[in-house]
């Protein structure tokens, strides 16, 4: 498999607080990389940097060999190739479900309305929300909103999909319906970079696990090594904090 996304020694600082400290990561096409770490460790910031929603002070991020760093003249063009789904769904409240899906293709890609709507309906059907196409976001449950948000990102045919704690705001009974969608995306070979707290899910979906602490990558490896034979004390402690009564 060939490399699609390359993060090359990036650092991110707010004033004198270092959030990311020379982080490097390479992601191959079709690979699912899951990033875990304690809250505030910089994992979400890393995703935001990849989508150039944050400035970085050092290093660079390359998509297919092309820099996506802010300051780049065409962040919009590059962002089309990188989809992102947020913890808080961020559906557009004044648009219906279907309009949420078709807005970017219509305005950004200038896709024809019929074509965009057909694709939108197909994606909605796939996640079982076809009947909700004319509802407004406020009429949906959290799990439904998040499934729509994932499909909205897919409408732009991104080469890489970034998922930022997409189940963190959901009630427990809705987590599964969203994670199943992500699992099915992994099966079709989508390239994804996922930040999550759901370790069980991470293990099921990941090709590779990355543990970030204090703005640095502390450990990475296959799910098997990562969960069964953590090499560092910090990862052992982190994993342990999730396991009650074992």
């Amino acid at each position: 498999m060939e490399e699609i996304l390359r993060i090359n020694g990036i650092s991110k600082r707010y004033d004198d607080i270092t959030v990311l400290d020379h982080v490097s990561l390479s992601i191959k096409s079709g690979e699912v990389v899951v990033i875990v770490g304690p809250s505030g460790c910089g994992k979400s910031t890393l995703l935001r940097c990849v989508n150039s929603l944050e400035n970085i002070q050092e290093g660079e991020i390359l998509l297919n060999g092309e820099s996506v760093n802010p300051g780049n003249k065409k962040p919009a063009a590059l962002r089309q190739k990188i989809g992102m789904v947020f913890q808080s769904y961020e559906l557009f409240p004044h648009k219906t479900v279907l309009q949420n899906l078709t807005l970017a293709p219509l305005k950004v890609k200038k896709t024809g309305r019929k074509e965009a709507e057909e694709e939108g309906l197909k994606l909605l059907e796939r996640v079982g929300l076809l009947s909700r196409k004319d509802n407004y976001p406020s009429q949906l449950s959290g799990g439904q909103k998040q499934r729509v948000a994932i499909m909205r990102a897919l409408m732009m045919h991104p080469e890489v999909l970034l998922l930022d704690e997409i189940t963190a705001a959901l009630d427990p009974e809705m987590v599964r319906e969203v994670l199943e969608v992500v699992l099915s995306l992994a099966k079709e070979g989508r390239t994804m970079l996922i930040v999550t707290h759901e370790l069980q899910f991470a293990r099921a979906v990941a090709d590779r696990m990355v543990f970030i602490d204090g703005g640095r990558i502390v450990e990475e490896g296959t799910p098997e090594e990562f969960f069964e034979h953590p090499r560092t004390e910090r990862l052992r402690k982190f994993l342990h904090s999730f396991s009650y009564g074992e």
């Binding site: 935001r48 919009a76 962002r79 989809g83 990102a153 732009m156």
Partner: peptide, 11 residues
Amino acid sequence: AQKESALSLGM
């Protein structure tokens, strides 16, 4: 985040 999610769609 509304603005960011729209930006992330390439707008």
